[in-house]
Design a protein around this nucleic acid. Structure first.
Lengths: 376, 376
DNA sequence: ATAGCCTCTGAATCTGCTT
DNA sequence: TAAGCAGATTCAGAGGCTA
């Protein structure tokens, strides 16, 4: 074509500045594919890079069943240095591709998120928030040697400290959050059930598929309808599916053809929301479950206090860790209540009472105080 | 003093191995003071280091020169480098001072926690968890351009990947949490009201005083009564106050004499909890070992008795030497339990049951009888 | 039809003592 | 130092099967 040779007139067609392939999955190495994209062309990036999990042996549940670990080759790196080099490379390309007003989201766990966060800062990105995805249903810690790993971390960053004009739909988020300011901690279930992509064998198609609710929160917070969202680690295509549903454009990069095919089929099946519907998904009310340890921790009852039942037949001592001691037996308020009565089970909140000026009162009253305070 | 010269006889008095100054605030530069402490002498470290270059005006390079305020990317990198060097220096000293079974907690925000986490990993620490402190009452985001910063991050790390035997009071934490295993997200109010230290002018004595509930959770989770807790950035002394209350020993390092004085006064006013309130809760894994042979020896079960599992699917015979026979296979209660189920491993004490008047009962009950008898 | 029970599974750096 | 083995360890949610 004649005008092709007169390249200067049509910058978008020059090899050095090709058009952005919209609503497309690019199959290939993330960094190589990013290099082909035009600079300053993307409004939002969501990246779910390899976590560099360093798993030792097998892990079994208490029932001896084997945990299906993420041991894929793409998650293996020689060293922290190798992981850091990889991280810098893709972050650098992402920064080139981002519009001046664009922002980046990265998700990770403690295995990799500190590397990613440091690299971000070193490259000049400006962190706007770290956001915690709290899982309602995380995998438990089967050996009881650590805290249940119940969250992952997202970093939200602008191209630089001087970046202005990035999108943050504050009013909409606030309206969708019972008129409270959107917070940096989000409660969202993991991806399971019908949402989880399955292969022909009925097994999960991708080991680390993210929930659509998480991506929806990100896109609704930090992009506008019609914006271009880039996902350099496209995987099962959650970003693309949610982008299509919410009226955003997407560009995905994925190395694995099987993942890319599964993602494409998934996205093809997505029906975009109506323009009117692309509003806020109201935040889920959080379950106000209260632990007795919290009651003690907050000083509502003193460690060393004595509790009794309504008829003063039993007496137990409150311990600093929120357990009760009945003689030499230590356990939860419920367990110790059961032991005291010789019963199978017991609701400790209503069984145990404390002395007050007005007589005995169930410790449930303390729980109400915690709930009232946390709600305010 | 004569015996001082004969240093070899009293290693604890040699300069190279001074005694640990317990329940003391050391006034001076954190790194210099840590260097004076004996190696492998501390059970737990809680560190609340200066958060960041942008907000703290007093960040200094290792040579004590002041880091200038930052605007351009290079200076920013410069100051990150200075912060990283400072971080590595104190982390290195902390690692030296930690016992092999000791663990470290560090708290930070997105301004510094990624630097700290990376440095930790680079120095060989092994991250056990990252923990999110969710604030019930965070400072609102006034400009509405970001998410309300409603959390801070703690990193819990062991000295290395091979570090075993660190303290984690799993059972007590679980009992204090409605019998659910403790998670990596903690909901705790910020420090305010009467707990907040005030100066003579009625203003807050320290800008980043941490809530005692947070420290209590850390100490109750990862230390035992009598353990030594080191805080290299002592500040308002929350670590010391909580350590004293919970029956732990503390060592604090603080550069600012005013902070140290306020902390000392605060700690002096703390009344320790009663012994009953803080006594180490008995953990199953620390209960004395009992051999099944002992159970048989003491006549608690007869050789030749038949054991079965809870669903009566398998049957094994008790042998006089304390082994079990399943058909022609002979082995420990655990091994035979595993063989019966075709499993890798099995806890024979809970798997195997015996017939009693009240129905099937796990043979663990017999172990309890042995333990009770031995304790008496 | 439904309640209840059983099974399966999820980004996991998941033991510790003795020989 | 590495192997062997005692023995401690799980929560929410989805889906399937049975009474």
């Amino acid at each position: 074509m004649a005008f092709r040779r007169n390249g200067a007139a049509l910058a978008a067609e020059r090899p050095s500045a090709p058009a952005l392939p919209l609503d497309t999955i690019l199959i290939g190495d993330c960094i190589a594919e990013l290099e082909k994209l035009p600079p300053a062309s993307v409004d939002l990036v969501f990246a779910d890079p390899p976590y560099n999990l360093q798993l030792q042996g097998d892990l079994r549940r208490p029932d001896q069943s084997l945990v299906d670990a993420v041991d894929d080759a793409w998650d293996q790196f020689e060293s922290f240095a190798a992981y850091d080099a990889f991280t810098r490379a893709w972050l650098l390309q992402v920064r080139r591709v981002l519009k001046p007003t664009g922002t980046l989201w990265v998700i990770g766990s403690y295995h990799n998120i500190f590397r990613v966060g440091s690299a971000l800062q070193d490259l000049g990105y400006w962190i706007l928030n770290d956001v915690v995805w709290r899982k309602t249903n995380p995998m438990p810690n089967f050996r009881g040697r650590r805290f249940t790993n119940a969250h992952e971390t997202l970093i939200w960053a602008a191209r630089g400290a001087d970046a202005k004009g990035y999108t943050f739909n504050y009013e909409a988020l606030k309206a969708g959050n019972e008129d409270l300011q959107p917070r940096s901690d989000w409660l969202i279930p993991i991806c399971s059930g019908g949402e989880r992509l399955k292969g022909d064998d009925g097994r999960k198609a991708h080991p680390t598929q993210k929930p659509e609710a998480l991506l929806a929160r990100v896109l609704l917070a930090a992009s506008k309808p019609g914006d271009v969202v880039l996902d350099p680690f496209f995987g099962s295509g959650t970003t693309g599916a949610v982008a299509k549903r919410l009226g955003r454009r997407f560009v995905g990069v994925e190395r694995d053809r099987d993942y890319a095919a599964a993602a494409q089929a998934r996205i093809d099946a997505v029906a975009p929301d109506s323009a009117a519907a692309i509003a806020q998904a109201p935040a889920k009310r959080e379950a106000p479950r209260v632990a007795f340890a919290t009651v003690v921790e907050r000083g509502l009852i003193q460690a060393g206090s004595r509790l009794t039942d309504a008829r003063r037949r039993h007496e137990a001592v409150v311990r600093a860790d929120g357990t009760l001691a009945l003689g030499s037996v230590v356990g939860s308020i419920h367990r110790i209540g059961a032991v005291a009565q010789g019963a199978e089970a017991c609701n400790g909140w209503t069984f145990w009472h404390m002395e007050t000026a007005a007589g005995l009162a169930p410790i449930d009253a303390l729980r109400e105080i915690v709930r009232a305070g946390d709600a305010a």
